[in-house]
Design a protein around this nucleic acid. Sequence first.
DNA 1: GAATATCTTGAATGTTCATTCAAGAAACGG
DNA 2: CCGTTTCTTGAATGAACATTCAAGATATTC
Lengths: 193, 193
Amino acid sequence: MRNAEFDREKVLRSAMTAFMDKGYGKTSMQDLTKATGLHPGSIYCAFDNKRGLLIAALEQYKTDRSAEFQQFFSGNHAVLVELKAYLDNIVQECISCEAAKACLLTKALNEMAQQDEDVQKIITENLANWQQGIADVIAKAQANGELSSERDSLHLARYLVMGIYGLRTFAHTHPEAETLQQLAEQLFADITA
Amino acid sequence: MRNAEFDREKVLRSAMTAFMDKGYGKTSMQDLTKATGLHPGSIYCAFDNKRGLLIAALEQYKTDRSAEFQQFFSGNHAVLVELKAYLDNIVQECISCEAAKACLLTKALNEMAQQDEDVQKIITENLANWQQGIADVIAKAQANGELSSERDSLHLARYLVMGIYGLRTFAHTHPEAETLQQLAEQLFADITA
DNA sequence: GAATATCTTGAATGTTCATTCAAGAAACGG
DNA sequence: CCGTTTCTTGAATGAACATTCAAGATATTC
């Protein structure tokens, strides 16, 4: 008996970064061996192939993002305050590093559309899960009386998700902090109006 | 002397479609020869290389989209009516065919981010141009008195552009007509509120 | 500490791809 | 209708790529 030497989470996070940098297609196995520190054989042993590594990385991404989401909404603050902080954090992601690196899910979704049904299904499920999380948060704010219940929480969540997608794409062409912050504020205002 | 046999516009539109279908990277020269009907040698003679064909296709795309834009806003209707029709048309694009095929500019932008500076610049300029077109339309509506001048036309245009980006990405996971129409209506309402 | 099981290594493999180029075809000018 | 120029053709080229695998290394077990 003998255990694998590498740290699976670290490897997957490196792979995530590599895929976000160049996209799945343009990330070569050589890039991945460099990023992860693993040799081809090890990658193929642990993840079957490049696609398997992507799928495992997507899973890790989901885990990491879920934990982050919980962090933002587990405080004792008003829900809308937490939501605003969450949105601001997304804006910061778009500003600080490269916008392209912002989200593995949407990046892969754009690339894989109509090409790999299984991967697309995984991504779609993850995004649906995220949207539901936001809908739950909004519903909580409505139950609290922080937010009017006039508009359906699911509709509001969809609109916010759409806005976040748009914000990320917008950041590709206009990475200026001021512009993005303004857009995010308007988005938040329209949701909470 | 002898003239080229192929129709440049037709070739570029075929290339556009091919690039939108699979993305630039995954579109092989073989795909392009099949799509355009041109042999490799002819493509290299006319456009230098695959990248040159993309750039030429982007130029054609800009031309085609500009003409379409003019069409939508050259009627005698109220500007806001025209704008709503324009937005509805974008929603229809997202529904009817595959959402991935919706926009060469954003598709290529997502793929090329941080990889090909020249191409990114071309795309960014085209998108900025489009945004300015929308800002002009909005300013016209404000001058008309159709729309309050309280909010800056550029800000409104940015917000609308962001929403359209988001709508297209959203359509990748939820191509249902009802959902997209609802989102577009809310977006329009928030702009014109 | 020997035997065994498992993991690691990285060169080899075969495929796919963008690109080239020399030969052939077709239009034009005289 | 011949010579020249330009365009077309598609097989050939070499590079890059994902993947494999046999040899080597290392931990665990008895």
